[in-house]
Nucleic acid binder design. Structure first.
Length: 790
DNA sequence: CAGTGAGCGAGCTTCCGCTTGACTT
């Protein structure tokens, strides 16, 4: 029996450490926090010094029991949870549930998993730092008070089951505010001018290159005037400037930067990145994936040095120590890096390989030399005016770290519009005459602010110090599950633009079209997200303040230093906060109806048209609510439509469907639009409208034609019927024949001849598959429940 | 794949941070 019990947070970590410590040490994991406030109810006695009630959660009871048993047998227990606020609290909770004396129990920490660090830690134990624990308690209690007092206000004033919190509500606010910036964006247009020049090089060949005019024209007239002055003009090199430049590698990955880069370079979602990283971690291939540290252990540093020297030579090595820039970083771990730098390639799924490769490259590149560049700028004078064309070139003199890790634009938010950079420029001297092949001026438009992707949202939250590495992915899930935001692709729209070309002394004008505003996997605020945000912003501005977290973090720091009592801090916060909750609860009426937007008057009835959120979601309404004799008409908004931006025309269109076309076979024919697009409804059946048909103008005869077509298809679908039981049918589907019984589909064995199968044989197949299905039915209903919950 | 657009009816929902499962498709 081992005399020493060491408790860490992660089971993977436990396995690794056990190897370093040897036989006398048993290393176990607590699987994170072991106790917490109760799942239901506030769990904080606000009347008595905010005393918290802690409980061991149902799913933690087993592990706590096991640890208790082992702790009882061990001679000495070492609490080795992470070296940060949460880790210290885990150690303290452990001491409480395991009945250990908190004043004598050994507390050890290490922020890298190396033999050296661990033996050093074991040699230098301390005891639990109660001030740090208190800072965590304050954090936990504050979050509980905010979340569990604000959410019920939303249930009463907006809609049941909604939620609000210090982190999620600010995340939603960022997205809503950005959407408003986009709505209010008034971009102008301008004309950008480029020219193609040629010059003979030393070998006598023509060298072509591009240059851009140092002026953007505001109108078409100005543009034309300029082009006219260029007819017959001469061009020569006015000046040449060569400048060395350099680029440095980025720091090794933290959780947030890994999520951003995996999103940009590999197209992974934030949660995808985390679960792939988790697998790599559990396989012992990378260090811990939830970290805010950019630090590398000494062992790793020297391994990186030798790898670089081996692969690229010692000239490519450049030792660099990175410092974290993110607010509130706690740095309990290392940066995310390969566990063994020597392993450049791993076995695994394609995704695992890609992510590992990204981590390996980033880590090694972080210790490599700068990339050296030479930037050349050539100014080209125009004989007929004082404007200049500027040709820019960039040549890489020494790749440095770029050998491994390609340029990553730090400004994730901005679409890169770097213009045209030539890789090479001709070897010209000042005064050289240039031949102008063509001048092209193109209408361009100011860019609206970009929408958030998952990764750019994480980036902004991190910059504000809001949320932790372990919560970025769950926070995104929460705001999507609550319906505050949706993640989707949206089609762009066509936009026309002008292009003028001057060639051979002739100016030609062309109108071109492009697609603009296409969005892929972006976060869009919904109507309910906007409404909840506006409610919280107006009633609880202090919580929604982007600096709220930063401010309370300062106080948590004071508590950690022992300069402030945690209950005193909470008291000061709670008094005004609770007051604002009480005030909000006293308010009468529904917030949603107070936010009703008037769109104008309906030209048919002359009544007002409104948009707002109703009982069943966002809608438009013609006429006044509460008018008993003249009830208003209602129509739901379609997916993607916002109360804030819907126009009168769009609103009126919503009332055009469902449309009654007439009767066929004594039953009405109507046109509607549903989840899968426009449809014809007749005799309880639905027929999808093909893309070519317009639901607003289609006529009865065409609809009947489509109904008959569908009937014909359905008839062809039926391969065989059975007189024994009309619920049984053999049908022809996309993947061949199948059985349909009582509305449920079943498979036919491959290569079965449907003409030979008897009724009894087929029913046997149905019974068989029904029985097989039983086991998976539970799963299926589970899935459905999750979906409806969303 | 409807159309709905209250107010006496019962009880529930919710936070943030630590950790990994348990299911298949």
């Amino acid at each position: 029996m081992a005399e020493n019990l060491v408790i860490v947070e992660s089971p993977t970590k436990a396995k690794t450490i056990e190897k370093f410590l040897g036989k006398e040490y048993l290393v176990k994991s607590s699987f994170g926090h072991v106790r917490d406030l109760p799942k239901k109810g506030l769990g904080v006695d606000v009347k008595h010094d905010f005393t918290p009630t802690y409980e061991v959660a149902e799913d933690k009871k087993k592990i706590v029991e096991e640890l208790k048993k082992l702790a009882g047998k061990a001679k000495r227990v070492w609490l080795a949870s992470d070296e940060d606020r949460e880790g210290e609290a885990i150690a303290w909770h452990l001491s409480q549930v395991l009945n250990l004396d908190v004043n004598t129990t050994h507390r050890i920490v290490f922020h890298e998993i190396t033999k050296n660090a661990i033996t050093k830690a074991v040699a230098n134990p301390r005891i639990v730092n109660i001030n740090l624990v208190n800072a965590q308690q304050a954090r936990r209690i504050l979050d509980r008070l905010v979340g569990f007092e604000l959410s019920p206000v939303l249930w009463r004033k907006v809609k049941p089951s909604l939620s609000a919190g210090r982190v999620q509500s600010v995340a939603v606010r960022l997205i809503v505010q950005r959407e408003r910036e986009i709505i209010n964006f008034k971009g102008g247009d301008f004309y950008r001018t480029t020219a193609i020049f040629t010059v003979k090089n030393q070998e006598g060949n023509n060298f072509r290159f591009k240059a851009e005019l140092n002026h953007r024209f505001k109108s078409l007239e100005e543009t034309k005037t300029f082009l006219n002055t260029c007819i017959g003009a001469q061009y020569h090199v006015a000046s040449i400037e060569k400048k060395p430049a350099h680029r440095s590698p980025s720091a090794p990955f933290t959780t947030s930067t890994l999520q951003q880069e995996a999103g940009r370079k590999l197209g992974f979602s934030v949660s995808q990145t985390m679960s792939i990283a988790q697998r790599l971690y559990e396989a012992g291939l990378i260090t811990y994936m939830r970290t805010d540290s950019v630090n590398l252990s000494d062992d790793a540093m020297s391994a990186i040095k030798s790898v670089i020297t081996d692969l690229f030579g010692s000239k490519s090595y450049h030792k660099r120590i990175y410092k974290t820039k993110s607010k509130g970083a706690q740095e309990a771990h290392e940066a995310i890096r390969p566990s063994y730098i020597e392993r450049q390639h791993i076995e695994g799924s394609p995704q695992e390989k890609k992510l590992y490769h990204l981590i390996w490259n980033r880590t090694v590149a972080s210790q490599m030399s700068d990339a050296l560049l030479e930037r050349t700028v050539i100014d080209i004078a125009v004989s007929s005016c004082d404007k200049k064309f500027i040709a820019k070139g960039e040549v890489i003199v020494d790749e440095g770290f770029l050998k491994l890790y390609g340029e990553s634009s730090t400004a994730l938010d901005e679409e890169t519009d770097k213009g045209d950079n030539n890789l090479l420029l001709p070897p010209v001297t000042v005064g050289t005459e240039l031949y102008n092949e063509r001048i092209e001026t193109t209408q361009r438009f100011d860019q609206r602010p970009p929408r958030f992707s998952e990764a750019t949202l994480v980036k902004h939250l991190e910059e504000l110090g809001i949320g932790r590495p372990s919560t970025y992915a769950p926070t995104i899930s929460t705001i999507i599950n609550r319906g505050y935001v949706v993640k989707e692709d949206r089609d762009g729209v066509e936009r026309k633009y002008l292009q003028l070309t001057l060639q051979n002394g002739q100016i030609t004008e062309k109108e071109l079209t492009e697609i603009t505003g296409t969005e892929k996997a972006k976060l869009f605020s919904t109507n309910i997200g906007i409404l909840v945000n506006d409610y919280l912003e107006s009633h609880f501005p202090a919580i929604l303040d982007y600096n709220f977290t930063a401010k309370v973090e300062e106080e948590f720091d004071d508590i950690a230093k022992g300069e402030l009592a945690w209950d005193e801090m909470i008291r000061r916060f709670y008094q005004p906060f609770h007051q604002s909750v009480t005030t909000a609860e006293k308010e009468e009426g529904s917030f949603a109806s107070s936010q009703q937007r008037s769109l104008g008057t309906d030209p048919v009835s002359g009544k007002q048209v409104y948009a707002r959120i109703g009982r069943f979601g966002p809608m438009v309404q013609i006429g006044e609510s509460g008018d008993e004799n003249n009830k208003p008409k209602y129509a739901s908004l379609r997916a993607g439509q916002l109360i804030e931006t819907i126009t009168l025309d769009e609103a009126l269109k919503l009332f055009a469907l469902p449309r009654l076309l007439g009767e066929y076979e004594g039953k009405t024919v109507t046109i509607g639009v549903g989840r899968f697009g426009p449809y014809i409804r007749h005799d309880g059946k639905f027929v999808s409208l093909p893309q070519t048909e317009n639901p607003y103008t289609i006529q009865l005869d065409k609809a009947i034609e489509l109904i008959e077509e569908k009937r014909k298809k359905d008839r062809e679908k039926v391969l065989k019927l059975f007189p024994e039981d009309e619920k049984l049918q053999l049908l022809n589907g996309r993947w061949g024949a199948y059985i349909s019984y009582d509305g449920v589909n079943y498979k036919l064995p491959k290569n079965s001849d449907i003409n030979l199968l008897s009724y009894d044989e087929i029913m046997k197949l149905v019974e068989q598959q029904k029985a097989e299905g039983e086991t998976s039915v539970k799963k299926r209903t589970n899935k459905r429940m999750v979906k409806t919950k969303k």
